[in-house]
Write a protein that binds this DNA or RNA. Sequence first.
DNA 1: CTGTTAGCGCATTCAC
DNA 2: GTGAATGCGCTAACAG
Lengths: 345, 345
Amino acid sequence: MSIEAVAREAGVSVATVSRVFNAPDLVRAPTREKVRQVALRLHYRANTSAQTLRTQRSKVIGVVLPTLRNPVFAECLEGIATTAAEHGYSIIPATTSYRVEDEEAAVASLSGRSVDGMVLVVANPATSPALRRLAAAKLPYVLAYNRHRRHPCVSVDNEAAVAEVVRLLVARGHRRIAMVSGELAASDRAQQRHEGFVRAMRECGLPDGELIEVPFMDHAVRHLTEFLQRRGHRPTALFCSNDLLAIRTVRAASQLGLQVPHDLSVVGFDGIELGGDLTPSLGTVVQPNREIGVECVRLLAAAMQSGTPVAASDSRTAPHVFREGESIGPGAAATGAPLTPCLSN
Amino acid sequence: MSIEAVAREAGVSVATVSRVFNAPDLVRAPTREKVRQVALRLHYRANTSAQTLRTQRSKVIGVVLPTLRNPVFAECLEGIATTAAEHGYSIIPATTSYRVEDEEAAVASLSGRSVDGMVLVVANPATSPALRRLAAAKLPYVLAYNRHRRHPCVSVDNEAAVAEVVRLLVARGHRRIAMVSGELAASDRAQQRHEGFVRAMRECGLPDGELIEVPFMDHAVRHLTEFLQRRGHRPTALFCSNDLLAIRTVRAASQLGLQVPHDLSVVGFDGIELGGDLTPSLGTVVQPNREIGVECVRLLAAAMQSGTPVAASDSRTAPHVFREGESIGPGAAATGAPLTPCLSN
DNA sequence: CTGTTAGCGCATTCAC
DNA sequence: GTGAATGCGCTAACAG
C-alpha cells in the first residue's frame, strides 16, 4: 500500500502516481483513471509522515486550551475540529489546566509534532512565555477568547458585553450588584470583564460594585454560600464572570433558601448550550463559542496557505448577544427611582 | 535544528545524537552531556515525521467520538488526553455527530494519519463497519462506553446500573415509572439501558414501564412537555437515559408548573460534573468518565507496547455509583404498600 | 562506545 | 506526459 506498490501494479512510475493525487492535470486522463482504480483496489492511502517530511507541512493544527471540562472550550473545540477537517487539517489538542507552565510545555510538544499552526487559549497574552516562543518560531497562530492588541485574537468585546449586563440590571431596578469571578489574575478575560463591570457601575452612578473572588472552582458553592450568609445588606443581583460560576451561584443561593430570581438575580457569561435548558434558565452573555473556533481556523488556514503569519490586525471581535433567562428578575429597588443616564445608550 | 546540525556542532555523528535521546546508556557520559547541551542551545527538537517514517510508529492515538457537546465525552477525552500525554502519545480527535458514515470516514482519516491505535465510541459495535476495517488493519483499538463481547470495551454495566435505579425508586414508593431516551436505535448504550429498565420493572412486579423516545435532542423539552401534558395518569418518576435528557426533563416539568421532585422525580445517567451543582441537584448514575478514558489509553498503550491488538477479553467493566440528588423525591404511592421482593437484592 | 550507511514513503526537480 | 533520481530527518543495523 505504498506509492511504489501502486506504481508497479499500474505499470507507471511513482512520480505519476504522486501526480495523480497532487496534480491530476499533469497526467493524461486514461493513465489517471488507471492509477486511481488501482489505488482504490489496493486501498492505497498516502503516508502522511512521508508527505510531511517531504513537504515540510503536516496539515495539522495544534490546539492549546485550558480544559475540556468547561463546555465553553469543548464547544469551541468542536468548531475548530469541524472547520479544520473541512480544510483538510487534523487537530492535536493539548490541555493546560490553566497552568502557565503547561502552556509552554504544550506549545513545545506541538512544535515537535511540527504542526502548521496553532489555535490557543492562554491565561494572559501579555505575559505568556509560550507566545514569545511561537512568534520566534514564526509559526502562525491565533488566540481564542484572549484579547490583546499585539496578537491575532478572536474574541468578544468583554467590557462592552458586561456594560450591557449592568445597564440591563439597573434598568430592571437593581442597585446593589456584585460580581462573582474566579481569580482575576488567572486570565485576561476575567480582568476585562471585571474592568467592564467596575466602569459600567460607575457610569450608572452606582457605588463601586463589590467583587467576590472565588479562588477554586471546586469550592465555589461553599465560598458563595458563606458570602451570601455573611452579608447583611445583600446584593439583589450577582453578575458572574462565567456560566459555570453562575450555576454554582444559583446553587449557593438555593442552599440558603434564597429563590432565584425572586430573592437574587444571577447573570452568567459564556453562553454554554446547557444554560438555556436549566431551571431557571440562565440569563447570560452568549458568545458564539463554536464560531469563535471556526473563525480561528479560517484565519489560520488563510495564513498557512499564504505562508504568512496571522497579523494582530487580523483580530476579530465576535458578536455577543445577551440571552434573557429566568435567573434574572426585577430588582427589589423597583421604587420608581429615576433612571440613570447610562441607560440611554 | 536538525539532528545533523547538532551532530556537527557537537563534533559527533548523527547516530550518537540519536542515541543520546533514544538510548542514553549507550553513550559515554561526557559525550552525552555535551550533546545535550548543544541540543539545548540549538533548541533542537526531533522531527516527529521523520521518526514516524523511520520507526513506523507515530506515537499518536486517534480518538473517535460522537460529539464534544455532550460533557460525558468531553470529560472522557480529557482523561484520554492526559493519560496519552503521560505515555508520550498525542491524540487526534474526530467527531461523528452520531453519524455512522462519519465513523467510517473518521477511521479512514485517522488510519491515513497512521495512528498507532484508536479509542472510539461508536453507535453500535455489532453493526459498525468502521470496526471491521480497524480489525482488518490490525490496528489496536479500544471502545469506550460501548459494550460487546467480541470487542475490547471499557464501560459500566448499564443494565445493572439501571436496575439499581429502578429498585431505588420503587423502594421510595414510586410505582409509575417511565423511561426517557433518545432514539433507541442510535446506540447500544441506549438499548442496554432500556433493556435493563424493562427487566427491572418486571422483576419488581410493575407493569411494563413506558418508553418516551425523544428523536432529537434539540426538541427534547417540547417533546417531553407534550408527553407530560398528554398523560392523564402521569408517572411519578422518570428515568432518563442520560443527564442531558434529564436536565431537559426537569425543564419540561417546570414549564408545566410541575415541581421536581415534589410532583415528579427525575433520574439521570452519566454523571456529568455539572449535575451535582444544579438546582435541584441531579440524581444520577455516575460513570467514571475520566477514568474510562484513562483506562482505554492504558489498555491501548500496553497493546501498542507489545505489538499485540487489544483482546476482547481485556474488556473492563468500570464501576458506577449512584449519586443521590435533590431531583429524586418520595413517590406519591408511599401508601405503605408492601415492598416487592426485588428490593432485597 | 562511536561512526557509516541504508532506507522509511513521498514530492519534486530535471531529463526525456 | 512521464520516468529517474534526490533528499526531507531520523533510527537501526553493522563495522570498527
